[in-house]
Design a protein around this nucleic acid. Sequence first.
RNA 1: GUGGACGUAGCUCAAUUGGCAGAGCACCUGACUGUGGCUCAGGUGGUUGUGGGUUCGAGUCCCAUCGUCCACCCCA
Length: 424
Amino acid sequence: MLYHRPRGVNDILPDEVGRWQQAEATFRELCRLYRYEEIRTPMFEETDLFVRAVGKDTDIVGKEMYTFKDRSGRSLTLRAEGTAPTVRAYLENNLQGQDRERLVKLYYIAPIFRYDRPQAGRYRQHHQCGAEAINSAEPEVDAEIIQLSMHFFRKLGIKDVTLLLNSVGCPGCRPDYVKALKSQIAPQFEQLCRECQRRYETNPLRLLDCKNEQCRQIMENAPVLRDMLCPDCAEHFAAVQQTLDTLEIPYTLDPTIVRGLDYYTKTAFEFVAPGIGAKDSIGGGGRYDGLIEQCGGPPTPAVGVGIGLERVLIAQQAATKAQPKAGREAVFVVTLGEEAWVAGLKLTAQLREAGVGAEIDYRKRSIRAQMRTADGDGYRWAVIIGDDEAQQGTITLREMDSGEQETIPRSELVSRLGAEEEEG
RNA sequence: GUGGACGUAGCUCAAUUGGCAGAGCACCUGACUGUGGCUCAGGUGGUUGUGGGUUCGAGUCCCAUCGUCCACCCCA
């Protein structure tokens, strides 16, 4: 073999593309119901957009971006994340419009690129469907984003999705917490793993979700951010929980959910599902009240979610045992001999024009072989044209499942099948 | 980025101390000369991931490389 696909990227093959289309269609339909509008942003952006939005000291920016220079020397980066491009497009195209108070609701389905060591459910190109609700500080909007996500999982038959919920505070109260956290940990600094010693300086919040056993023991005594929120953040967090209660969406409070992107404020959440493997997170998101201002826009609160399609499909496969076989459809035109072949070609064309899927055996094999194909490839009907039919201007229409067949005038076929497709 | 397991037919897997690359399923053809599914018979299919090395001889041993998977890490 001459060429290989690059490491960590996948071909989505014909026999699995149906599941993708179904998941995408489900997300689109839900976004229509929740009144989110689709936006499509470019596959790459100025590198600085991601650096500023996601944060210099995050893993995504530090070591996972696909960054390159184009021929004019500009630094560009393949979409590393969905929110920053959406926010950029929202600002650049003035999607806010004249009504300064309007809630702008956007969604996207797009590939994401991150250079990481591949594993099952972790790829260098993966796909996310995401939703962003821009220009509302209301806690009920946080809940709507979560509600939309849970609705999506439910529609796909993924049960046992757990919603992990936390609040990471705001620029007002988080520094106080970080200060308290650092002073609490300081005496045991030497006992932290090397990575955590680095985090202590660059991104102390991430100390909370280190998996190292010794670090975890030290962290057990750490103050809980949830308890140190400023009145505004505390009130917001309580209201989010209350709205979730009202909507009967169960959740688990988890102080270790801090998210790996720096722009999050207040609400942070993650969805986990069984059956994915080591990492069972199928989606996550939160509020980012500071990001839009940071990107050069007016102060604008917002909240959003990103859902990993690859992982959703894995979870769906784990949750649903047997996947339903695709129903039979379309027509296979079986011809015998030269005269029949010409008639078959014409009929095939007519069927397609009439909106009925049709295929013909260009190899002109034996009737047996053609019938085997009609059966094996899942055709609903075989249209058989042999010597008799060719001479009489008829065809024999056979329904594969029932085995029932009748010979009818050729001219009746299209209207006959067109009608049956409608009801089928 | 760290540590480990594994790459043989379309799929799932065999192949003794280094000695003729195989089976099941799938696919194709025929039995059935105008009818699919069942049965039977026959058949196609491989540069053993790739490139080197050792050897009379390598799927097997050695080195490199690419890829997949697992545990870290990280994230969706």
